[in-house]
Design a protein around this nucleic acid. Structure first.
Lengths: 341, 341
DNA sequence: CGGACGGTTTACAGCGCTGTAAAGGACTGC
DNA sequence: GCAGTCCTTTACAGCGCTGTAAACCGTCCG
């Protein structure tokens, strides 16, 4: 079997607890003792058993991150940041995917992690306020994303209304007037962004034209392309700008425009949302709303830490975003990578 | 405190072990007893403590997945598949990033997971055969990726030489003769792919032209774009095809070609590697080598399961790939999504 | 020189669960 | 009616670690 604490203790001729003290960096251990124990640890090749430690300590040293799907660029990037933020807190991260399955989401709330984790960072697509309120599990929980939570748990978000408003206002500032939107308002994901879209137009005295709004049912590029195709087939005059719910959709939209002989941004300017890494590799590079994902991750982890320390009043935590202007709205002249990273 | 097994037992008026049997689906429990216990579990709101269970069972029910960086599309997608394959085995997954840091990679080998996991899926960038051979930790380990491992541990790979050969042969089949390569051979990542590139050319009696080979130092699109820019600046006649080490690099290359007024694929055909999701959203869509990631994940998890059952002879496990032909080599006529998904 | 004191080490219980082995009951066949 | 058998339930130790409290030990001070 693997060496245990007791084996090290025997080897060094000390008590188990002293070895434990050395391992955990307890201060009042003499230098001689420390050296002797460390040597013994090395000799027997000891590694602590974390299950046992967790049981004894009553803490897991681990949090769960629950996201819809890891190969979606937004969640991949977010996960990366959560891993980093958690590491700084001394937590390792267990990742779980729901694929938007309501049953799996409920299982998360029902305590499927069984005290194996000290907290849960959860990005739900299906479960709502009621189900969250009724959960019995006491594991600290923090929610991400746009679904409303009505103060039943900590919630980290960006102001999607303001972000969409900023994106659309940017298009209007460029002189565009027929601004289409691809990707809303069906499904709650787009609700806030649709709201921002409408707000920006209304402020300039432009009415929302239903002909210029096409919903998509996933965030895939193909969906964006098909939606743009459909819109162009329907209209006599194409829009002069498009606001897209996500960057991936925007890439599809650009593709559609290109295949219809429309130039981006000369004929049609395009803005995306999320600022995925490929924004700078596409042709043209993509203007996009860039949420501060690092901040989302940091705040989420901080929330769990606070809850673990006993904080219990649910908070709504807002983090920043910025508009990164690239070729798909600003064009190519001297702007090959205008505000890129 | 949270309810424990004993609390449920008291409530139901049975022994702890019977409750345990019910929870673990032990067969020889009478229906009446099962119902009584389940009711008690529900009444007190019991959830098993997994740390305690793991300690008692001597198994963790968890594996670690160690990758360089989660926001790289290849690893994001791979991670998704590993999560799914692990779930089928009843394992949850702890994810850790190394960012290619040699120290962190060594820590993985040194047993930093301390029996908290039943196995490790590791995609190393730095550590080599020797370090792996010398590790003392006995946790089952399976390696992914192209670094050679000389039979010191299970290893899941695709045949990168054959894959690159196939990609380049495809370009040659199209009648291209000046086939450039972006992304090798510096750094071991590209070695096999470079080999396949050379093999395909040689087989047709074409010599490798060093002027047509530009290494890149990361897989970012910007690097690909810069590399292509440099090559075009250097050459009198541009290549008529480019084989790129990754899709992301290919997107940058296409961008560079576009900005130099070269048409893809009419003037220059482009092939990528990895088949990232955006391959179908770019303009043009991208021809690419598509490794069977699901198989990689499946085999990796199966390897850990086998090792846990006592299997000890390290194996080299090869999984499949395919060439997905899209617009960047086949062009647009009737081929808008030629061999897409 | 005795007692108080602070630094250092130890003994031991217990975290919550499961494996083992054995006890308890019901049923079977002779 | 009794032993043998099978199904069901229980008792208990122990997984490997840490927290608590107490023991130990040398030093300092009055």
């Amino acid at each position: 079997m693997r060496p245990r604490l007791q084996d090290v203790a025997d080897r060094a001729g000390v008590s188990m607890k002293t070895v434990s003290n050395v391992i955990n960096g307890y201060v009042h251990v003499s230098e001689a003792m420390r050296a002797k124990v460390l040597a013994a640890i090395d000799e027997v090749g000891y590694e602590p058993n974390l299950s046992a430690r967790n049981l004894a300590r009553g803490r897991a040293g681990m949090i769960a991150l629950v996201v819809p799907q890891l190969d979606m660029p937004y969640f991949a990037s977010l996960s990366m940041h959560v891993l980093e933020a958690a590491e700084k807190q001394g937590w390792v991260v267990l990742i779980q995917q729901t694929r938007g399955d309501a049953e799996k989401e409920r299982a998360v709330l029902a305590g499927r992690f069984g005290q194996r984790v000290d907290g849960i960072v959860f990005s739900p697509l299906r479960v709502g306020t009621d189900e969250i309120r009724q959960r019995r599990d006491r594991t600290p929980l923090v929610l991400l994303g746009e679904r409303p939570v009505d103060g039943v748990a900590d919630h980290v978000v960006i102001d999607n209304v303001a972000a969409a408003d900023l994106a659309v206002s940017h298009l209007l500032d460029l002189g565009r007037r027929r601004v289409a939107m691809i990707g809303g308002p069906v499904g709650s994901t787009g609700t806030h962004r649709s709201e921002g879209y409408a707000a920006a137009l209304t402020r300039r005295g432009i009415a929302v034209d239903p002909d210029l709004v096409v919903p998509v049912h996933s965030n895939r590029g193909e969906e964006g392309e098909a939606a743009m195709d459909a819109m162009l087939a329907r209209l006599d005059t194409p829009p002069d700008a498009v606001f897209c719910m996500t960057d991936w959709v925007a890439l599809g939209v650009i593709r559609s425009l290109h295949l219809h002989g429309l130039r981006v941004p000369d004929d049609v300017a395009v803005v995306g949302f999320d600022d995925i890494p490929y924004s700078t590799a596409s042709t043209p590079t993509l203007t996009s709303i860039s949420p501060d994902r690092a901040a989302v991750a940091r705040e989420a982890v901080a929330s769990l830490a606070a809850q673990q320390k006993g904080e219990h009043e649910p908070r709504e935590i807002e983090v920043g975003f910025e508009l990164v202007v690239r070729e798909s709205t600003a064009g190519g002249a001297g702007l090959r990578r205008p505000a890129g990273r």
